[in-house]
Each structure stands twice: as structure tokens, then as C-alpha cells.
């Protein structure tokens, strides 16, 4: 249970086409992340799968059955919302039990499942509180609890961590991944944060302006971005993109090189430049180096202990085996073999 397939699905609001016709298949037990900048249609796509919006054309198949016209309540999917969407007038216990109550489950069975979910999510002490009395992270867990008691075919997460502060976000990220490992249920997760996408996903779907730019595992996307958009979107700090004569040397319109694939030296190298801002993160230091080959500074990742003065003269050398080449359309050019 939990295989989802989109066939030529599109969505328009009035005359605006938010999702262009697209195909996508999500395998049983997979953790799939939809990632893209805001307004790319990733949340809309999730809501189409949930049934909270009608598709304009195409079909949504769940476990091989056409669910295009099925009401959200009947699709057997559970959703965790960005705002958590907890019922403020119900206790945590009642919140978690709500889907079971709607399914008219036996009262004892309801209690058993709620207790089980509370144990898994460490919510045991809070069952009789109202959502308003909980912290952000606890609310998040209640929302997840409400989703897991239903034992759904798949979980849908709509930017669930964006309302949490940075430290909690990392913790919840691990918890959700852990949950996936344990339940082995299909999860579809929407985020605009590529770090979340990289760390959690089995499969990433990069979306932009209602179009799927690339589908693949995190490492595939990192190592072989299919086009300039994915190259720039995946990876932090961003990949350096250089156009013009330097790119032509490699028979490309644009070349891309990640900050971690550039050597920096005070004495020699291929590109001469001056150090601009330095960001010391402890383990790593990022230097923004102004070079003649590119109008924008080139970001370089160096060991944490390296210190260079503002304005110092340095030399950069890209490790050419990690160079990405793109044609004038922005598409990846395959390595000359």
C-alpha cells in the first residue's frame, strides 16, 4: 500500500497554469521530497494528491486505482500541515483520536492506538493538555501523531518544519526520518529548504514554475544536476556559475564548480583574484573571491583554520573532474567520453 502515480496532471487557477501537465510516480515506502522556490507549485501538487484541490486535467492513481474524483477523506492519506492545524478546542488525546473517531472505530481500539502513538512520539505526559499549552515542537508531534494513528497509505507533509526555530528543526528532521525508517510508509514532503530535501529524501523532485526540473536521489542531483536551475538550487553554498571565455575553454556556454571543488592558494593557480568577505563557520571557512573570470565573486570552501585578509591576493584552481558544463539552453552537457 502506498504507491502513487500522477498521469499528465495539471492545475490552473483561472487562466494561470500553476502546474503544467506532468507525470510522476512514487514507489511504495519511498520518502519523496518536493523542493523548489516559493510559488513553484510544490504545495499545490501536494494538495492535488491530497484531494484538497481538483486537478484541471490528468489523473491521480493511488495503489493503481484512479482516485482523481475521490474525496480527501476517502483517499487513505494523512497530512501534516505547515500551521499544524491542530483543533484548538480539543485536548491532545482528542486531537490524535479525531481521525479514528471519524472512522467510527471502537473506543478501546481508539485508546490503544492513541496511547501507542503518544508513546512513539513522547507525548505521554501531554495527552490531556490543549494545543495552546504546547511548544512548537510538541504541536508538531501531535500533528504527526494524528497522522500516524490512521495508519495511512501515505503521509503528506506540507512544509512542516518552517514554523520551528533552527535548533528544533534539525531535531524534528531526524525524528521524521527515524519515523520513516520505522514505519516504512510512503512519505511525500514539501519544503523550500534544500538542506531538508538533501538530508531526508530517498528521491527529490525539483520543481520550478510548475514544471519538474529533475527527479533523482540526493546524490544524483548533487553530482549530475540536469540543468542550471537544479545546479544552482541544490547545494549550499550555491554552485559557482561562470559564463563567457572561461566557459568556452571547456566547450560550454556556462560552467559550474561547487565551492568545495576549488583549491585556494596564496602563491599559484589558474584564476587570480582578491579575497572579499570571509565567513568563518568553525569547521569550514567560505571565502568570496573576486576574479577576472566572473563578474560575481566566486565562493570557495576552505578548511576552518585558514585565514586570509580582506583584499589579499589569491589563486584559485578548479578541480576539473568536478566541473559541470551547460549549453546555451542551460542543459547539462555530458562529459566527453
Amino acid at each position: 500500500m502506498g504507491q502513487i502515480e500522477l498521469k499528465q496532471v495539471s492545475k490552473s487557477f483561472g487562466t494561470v497554469e500553476v502546474i503544467r501537465p506532468l507525470d510522476l510516480s512514487i514507489e511504495e515506502g519511498e520518502f519523496v521530497v518536493f523542493v523548489g522556490p516559493s510559488g513553484c507549485g510544490k504545495s499545490t501538487l501536494l494538495r492535488l494528491i491530497a484531494g484538497l484541490e481538483d486537478v484541471t486535467s490528468g489523473a491521480v492513481l493511488i495503489d493503481g486505482e484512479d482516485a482523481t474524483g475521490t474525496a480527501p477523506a476517502k483517499r487513505g492519506l494523512a497530512m501534516v500541515f505547515q500551521s499544524y492545524a491542530l483543533y484548538p478546542h480539543m485536548s491532545v488525546r482528542k486531537n490524535i483520536a479525531f481521525p479514528l473517531r471519524m472512522a467510527k472505530l471502537d473506543k478501546n481500539e481508539q485508546d490503544r492506538r492513541v496511547e501507542e502513538a503518544a508513546r512513539v512520539l513522547n507525548l505521554g505526559d501531554y495527552l490531556d493538555r490543549r494545543p495552546g499549552q504546547l511548544s512548537g515542537g510538541q504541536r508538531q508531534r501531535v500533528a504527526i501523531g494524528r497522522a500516524i494513528v490512521r495508519e495511512p497509505a501515505a503521509f503528506l507533509f506540507d512544509e512542516p518544519l518552517s514554523n520551528l526555530d533552527a535548533a528544533l528543526r534539525v531535531g524534528m528532521r531526524l525524528e521524521i526520518s527515524e519515523l520513516h525508517k520505522r514505519l516504512r510508509t510512503t512519505m511525500i514532503y514539501v519544503t523550500h529548504d534544500q538542506v531538508e530535501a538533501m538530508t531526508m529524501a530517498d528521491k527529490i523532485v525539483v520543481l520550478q514554475a510548475g514544471v519538474i526540473e529533475q527527479v533523482g536521489s540526493p546524490l544524483e542531483l548533487y553530482q549530475r544536476p540536469r540543468n542550471l536551475f537544479v545546479a544552482g538550487f541544490i547545494g549550499s553554498p550555491r554552485m559557482n556559475l561562470i559564463e563567457g571565455p572561461e566557459a568556452a575553454k571547456y566547450d560550454a556556454h556556462t560552467i559550474g564548480i561547487r565551492p568545495e571543488h576549488i583549491e585556494i592558494s596564496e602563491s599559484q593557480g589558474s584564476w587570480k583574484g582578491t579575497v572579499g568577505l570571509s565567513e568563518h563557520l568553525g569547521a569550514d571557512t567560505f571565502f568570496h573571491v573576486q576574479c577576472a573570470v566572473s563578474p560575481t565573486p566566486i565562493t570557495v570552501r576552505a578548511p576552518g583554520e585558514m585565514i586570509l585578509k580582506y583584499g589579499a591576493e589569491v589563486h584559485l584552481t578548479p578541480r576539473t573532474q568536478y566541473l559541470h558544463r551547460f549549453d546555451s539552453e542551460g542543459l547539462r552537457k555530458n562529459e566527453p567520453s
Partner: peptide
């Protein structure tokens, strides 16, 4: 918030 009603819908209400 409409999301709460949508959550209810997803919960089978």
C-alpha cells in the same frame, strides 16, 4: 484558518 478544516477533511470528517 482554513487549514484546520482541511485537516478535518483529511482526517476523514
Amino acid at each position: 484558518p482554513g487549514e484546520i478544516l482541511e485537516a478535518a477533511r483529511m482526517d476523514g470528517a
